[in-house]
């Protein structure tokens, strides 16, 4: 009857469209939500300036993106993975097992990580890594002894900080940002306060002590944010005493709601990050599957376009949005143009 016919034709349509799926004509990108804004700017400009279709950029985090990148070679896998950290040995190995051997690593620039609080909140204007460590670590140094963190207010350990309850919103463990926060802030604070030394004196190996430095207190004063910066912003909005971790670009877009704190006396800005004065920054990357170059139309052009001076240079739209452009951009441009893969000597 008519339903049988309908079903049959529906199945036929599905079958035809499945077989007729021709070569993908757009570049497919996934990965870090920190890189996503930059990638979307470039993708839009690429669509406007070339006759190739606008690339598709998905987010989901550095690790998730690299995992999909390493799924294999072919049209149903992504061409480019965005990452807010360098690819790990483990991931390169996983890639190789699935046949993804030639990977081009592209560093697009640097991103600063800033500590900001509500614009009308207490005066959080200057932090050091030690302050953050003292506020958030489960075990801290008090009078030369390693004890469970007794601090309730910022002023408990640093009289220069306001007498406000400690409440920090830090990136969750699935974010690439967390790694930088741990490395550049917590470990630095751990060493500076002498907690690491005390741990090692208490019989911990250096590695164990370093791992212990990365822990944060679990009594609700440190809150992991697994969503993106808009979630952190919403939490800060609702908590006068909250201090949140943001990307520099996000902060600069919301200066009417947030005020930023200096780190070790240096105010975060594209200049201080580029010069390396501001301590908490990290490079941003994307990874290209070399096997897809020449197969997916526009892939090579997109990569060249992304790192070109007019885009990623100091006057380009990425820097305008908040990316700190890479002083060694010309080397990157060369590597992309010649398709230099990782581990091939450069």
């Amino acid at each position: 009857m008519s339903y049988a016919k309908l079903t049959a034709s529906a199945l036929a349509i599905a079958a035809i469209s499945a077989t007729a799926a021709q070569a993908r004509d757009n570049v497919q990108i996934a990965g870090s939500s920190t890189v996503l804004p930059y990638a979307s700017i470039v993708a839009e400009a690429f669509g406007e300036n070339f006759d190739f279709p606008t690339p598709v950029v998905e987010s989901g985090g550095s690790s998730a993106g690299l995992k999909r990148f390493c799924d294999g070679v072919g049209e149903n896998t992504i061409d480019i993975a965005n990452a807010s950290r360098a690819i790990r040995e483990k991931e390169i190995k996983a890639c190789a097992e699935n046949g993804v051997t030639d990977i081009i690593e592209v560093r697009i620039g640097y991103d600063g990580i800033v500590f900001a609080s509500q614009i009308n909140g207490p005066d959080f204007t200057a932090f050091t890594p030690s302050d953050i460590f003292n506020a958030l670590a489960p075990k801290v140094m008090v009078d030369g002894q390693l004890v469970d963190n007794p601090h309730q207010q910022w002023s408990d350990f640093n009289a220069d900080l306001p007498a406000a309850d400690i409440l920090a919103f830090i990136p969750g463990t699935k974010h690439g940002t967390r790694e930088v926060f741990e490395e550049k802030v917590l470990v630095a604070g751990c060493e500076a306060t002498g907690a690491m030394e005390a741990m090692m004196a208490a019989g911990m190996s250096e590695d164990d002590a370093e791992d212990a430095c990365l822990e944060v207190r679990t009594d609700g004063k440190s809150v992991d944010i697994d969503g993106d910066y808009t979630e952190t912003l919403a939490r800060i909005d609702a908590n006068t005493n909250g201090v949140g971790v943001f990307g520099l670009a996000f902060y600069e877009n919301n200066t009417d709601k947030l005020k930023v704190a200096t780190m070790s006396g240096v105010a975060p800005s594209t200049e201080t990050i580029a010069s390396g004065e501001y301590p908490v920054s990290r490079p941003l990357f994307f990874y290209i599957k070399k096997a897809h170059i020449g197969v997916i139309p526009g892939l090579q052009e997109f990569a060249d376009f992304f790192v070109s001076d007019v885009i990623a240079g100091p006057d380009g739209p990425l820097a305008q949005y908040g990316l700190v452009s890479d002083p060694e951009l010309s080397a990157t441009q060369e590597a992309v143009a010649s398709g230099t893969t990782m581990g091939s000597g450069s």
């Binding site: 993708a43 839009e44 606008t54 598709v56 950029v57």
Partner: peptide
Amino acid sequence: GMVGFIARYPETFL
């Protein structure tokens, strides 16, 4: 993969 930056109209019905 439908959540992300996708900025194009399809050119044909298919």
